Computed example of a mutant assay.
Amino acid sequence: MNALDWLNGPAFEAFGQRVIWSDMIGNTIGLAALALGWRRSIWTWPAQFLAGVILVGAYASAQLSGGVGKQLLVIGLAVWGWSQWRRGHRDEGGEIAVRFATWRERLTLAAATVAGTLAVGGLFTLVPELSWNPWPDAYIFVGTLAAMVAQARGLVEFWLAWILVDLVGVPLAFSSGLAFSGLVYVVYFGLVLWGLRDWWLRTRPSATALEGALL
């Protein structure tokens, strides 16, 4: 048995569904990547890169070509995000500075997300073998990329984008037979709420001073 066969082999069953190793390992690393993003650690990007590489196998085994394509783009964006954070603005503590997007940035990101979802959803509809559930898959596909772009730019809206992705991602993962992905999305949701609160508070002028006083 080669490594790919092992990764796509069964690990255990959850809720009557088989969980494969690639699904479990990839999403566990993805969960760690989100936690690292919450802590504004640059290691969030290598973790997202590794999770994307492993999840390619998981989505391929589930015959979700759209998911495979998404993970390939996630890999590319992880490299870009790493470069952005390496030369990004820092706060007084030397960590990545975060901020709310301007209205122009919000409108641009929202318009690009809508246009991208329509384009990808249309492609999935025209080529059924790419996805058995075109529009939810396209929504998650583009929403994930939008969230990563916002994260790379240090925007608080990154967390809001993840909330919108989770609302569709949980039921789609379970219905696709990727039970562990569904469970991880539920945990993602909790981390996203905490991350949103943390980044939101750090946009306040007194946040850095308060943090220093507590130390």
Rank of each mutant, 00 (worst) to 15 (best):
N2V: 08
A3G: 00
D5M: 10
D5L: 12
N8I: 14
P10A: 14
A11C: 09
A14N: 01
G16R: 12
D23S: 07
M24K: 00
T28R: 01
A33T: 04
A35V: 13
A35N: 02
W38S: 02
S41P: 11
S41N: 14
W43Q: 06
T44G: 13
F49L: 15
F49K: 08
G52N: 06
V53E: 04
L55K: 03
V56D: 03
V56L: 13
A60C: 04
A60V: 00
S61W: 07
G67Y: 06
L73D: 11
A78I: 01
A78Y: 03
G81L: 09
G81I: 04
W85D: 01
G88V: 06
G93C: 02
G94A: 12
I96H: 10
R99F: 04
F100C: 12
T108W: 13
A115I: 14
F124W: 01
T125C: 00
P128S: 00
S131C: 09
D137N: 11
Y139M: 07
V142M: 06
M148T: 10
V149K: 04
Q151A: 15
L155F: 10
W159S: 06
L160V: 15
V165R: 06
V165F: 02
L167Y: 05
G169F: 10
V170Q: 06
S176V: 01
G177Y: 07
A179P: 11
F180S: 04
Y188N: 02
Y188K: 05
F189H: 10
G190N: 08
L193Y: 03
L196M: 02
W200F: 15
R202Q: 14
R202D: 13
T203N: 05
R204M: 12
E211T: 11
G212L: 14
